[in-house]
Write a protein that binds this DNA or RNA. Structure first.
Length: 380
RNA sequence: GCGGACGUAGCUCAGUUGGCAGAGCACCUGGUUGUGGCCCAGGGGGUCGGGAGUUCAAGACUCCUCGUUCGCC
């Protein structure tokens, strides 16, 4: 078996769904996979040994945030992000392209790159395709993402058409500055993923993929979805775009999503997902369970002595009552963040494990159907 | 005992020359998709301490009364 970093091995398919393994410099990642988000080098409220116990296989970090604080060079001097954060499994780093979208009041986009104004102190920083990869290499990222432009929902065809060309030019510059022989050799072994865009136009989604697919990237992402569009539209674009991506490379749906979104992604042949939803919602009292979404802040749980999710075996569900979890949330106790995060990530990661097993067993569709039934109203 | 100040939503308080009783927080219900421990949307809440009077109309003006508080005897 080829264990070289960058190699993606597909073990089984079930319809369009795939089960596989992506090899990195810090070991293999089984797919489909959900990647918890640890923007500043920490999955909020959790320690690495928690994540190990949850069986998290890979986490995210963010170029923009880590560059600003504490600084990529400082992290490099500490031996890289893995050692700095005491996490020895793979790390994927986002390029900062999404921050150009989410922090759009603070940035200016040009051919050269993205000019940011720091959300921390207002200082200006130019992020070029080359610079964001330098930063990611210094961090010691296992999977680096190219700089891209993510356009807001509602952007017109003309602007989006120019935008995908810019994203392609940036991808070319990225690959030229960090050719495969550089990023796949030496001590640092950094895979490099491209990001397809195209807004909400099928022709542009196709064009973006056709421009990027022939290039020598280790994986291909679908960016620019889940930016405020109606769910039906997202699912339509997802179903249109995912099959266009190279079949022999990992496919990554960025920033998505809800359990149903993720299952829908898998059903369309996507292998990798990341989302802040399980951790952010954990901190905001929304918990995912085998019974559906539960808002633990609701008054009805004030004297509910039962477990959060009777079907869950996580520490939180084994040990505490809904009444206690509600109390912790209402009191804004730190333990609330921790227990809720432990639970939500358990749910998401278990969902992926089950999805992978069902693909291997050829029963993915049945599982997909049960998840659809669990989240009515979310379906397109 | 005398004098002053204050009594308005659960809390802290606005409320103009008298003209539909408000805010912030709290509470309740949603939302949250490549993370600023945020933020957004909606909602329930009032015998304006009590009573009487003036007035077309009183939270506001007048009188009585109860309470809190400060000062002075």
């Amino acid at each position: 078996m080829d264990m070289r970093p960058g190699h993606f091995q597909i073990e089984a398919t079930d319809g369009a769904a795939r089960a596989g393994a992506l090899h990195t410099g810090h070991g293999a990642v089984p797919t489909p996979i959900f990647m918890p988000v640890g923007t500043v080098g920490s999955v909020k409220a959790l320690a690495p040994d928690d994540l190990q116990a949850l069986n998290a296989r890979i986490i995210l970090g963010n170029t923009y945030h880590l560059y600003l604080r504490p600084g990529d060079e400082l992290i490099a001097r500490r031996g890289g992000l893995h050692r700095f954060a005491a996490w020895d499994r793979p790390i994927l780093t986002d390029s900062g392209g999404y921050q150009a979208f989410s922090l759009s009041g603070l940035r200016k986009i040009s051919e050269e790159g993205v000019l940011f104004r720091s959300h921390l102190d207002g200082s200006k920083h130019l992020f070029t395709p080359e610079k964001v990869l330098s930063i990611q290499r210094r961090l010691g990222s296992d999977i680096m993402m190219v700089l891209d432009e993510c356009v807001p929902y509602g952007t017109d065809h003309a602007y989006t058409a120019e935008s995908i060309k810019l994203t392609t030019r940036w991808a070319l510059r990225s690959r030229e500055a960090f050719p495969a022989e550089l990023t796949r050799g030496g001590e640092a072994y950094n895979l490099l993923f491209a990001i397809t865009q195209g807004g909400f136009f099928k022709d542009l989604r196709r064009a973006s993929v056709e421009e990027l697919a022939p290039l020598d990237f280790d994986g291909f992402a679908i960016g620019g979805l889940s930016v405020g569009e109606p769910k039906a539209e997202m699912y339509e674009l997802l179903a249109h775009t995912a099959p266009l991506l190279p079949a022999d490379k990992p496919r990554y749906l960025m920033g998505v999503g809800t359990p149903l979104d993720i299952m829908t992604g898998i059903a369309n042949g996507v292998d990798m997902f990341d989302c802040v939803l399980p951790t952010r919602n954990a901190r905001n009292g929304t918990l995912y369970t085998s019974l559906g979404k539960i808002n633990i802040k609701r008054r009805e749980f004030a004297e509910d002595d039962g477990p959060l999710d009777p079907a869950c075996s996580c520490y939180c569900c084994r040990t505490f009552s809904r009444a206690y979890l509600r109390h912790l949330y209402v009191s804004q106790e730190l333990l609330s963040f921790r227990l809720n995060s432990l639970h939500n990530l358990t749910y998401f990661l278990d969902l992926m494990t089950r999805a992978r097993q069902s693909i291997l067993a050829g029963s993915f569709n049945a599982m997909y159907t049960t998840i659809k039934a669990l989240y009515p109203g979310e379906a397109a």
